[in-house]
Nucleic acid binder design. Structure first.
Length: 107
DNA sequence: CCACTGACGAGTG
DNA sequence: GCACTCGCCAGTG
């Protein structure tokens, strides 16, 4: 299993209305400290993957794509709000309310 | 091989 | 909050 596949496997488990941080995904995938690799893997994600990539935000609840000119950040925010995810006045997800806290971790 | 970059994060001042 | 720094790794030139 490649590192990308491990990462995708975790992202796939994030339930609707919940979000996880890059570092959290890395830790759950057994790649602790490699948050950057998660961002890289998602960047390389094909379009019709069906993966809920929009549920991955920074450790502070920010959407990393917002400062990109592509407009993908707005798409991500729209998809999250559509699932009921709330944002505060500073464009951050209310993590206390929406951060995913899985009960079981992989080996 | 080296330098730089990027959907990151923790730490320091 | 802002500005740095460092650690991390894959891709690019």
């Amino acid at each position: 299993m490649t590192k990308h596949e491990r990462i995708y496997a975790i992202v796939r488990r994030i339930p609707r209305g919940k979000v996880a941080s890059y570092g959290q995904i890395a830790a759950l995938a057994g790649l602790g400290g490699h948050a950057r690799l998660v961002g890289y893997a998602l960047h390389a994600l094909p379009e019709g993957s069906g993966l809920p990539w929009h549920r991955v935000v920074s450790a502070e609840g920010r959407i990393s794509l917002m400062r990109s000119p592509s407009g993908a950040g707005l798409t991500q925010r729209m998809r999250l709000e559509r699932e009921g995810v709330r944002f505060d006045g500073r464009d951050r997800v209310v993590l206390d309310r929406h951060q995913w806290r899985p009960r079981s971790r992989p080996d």
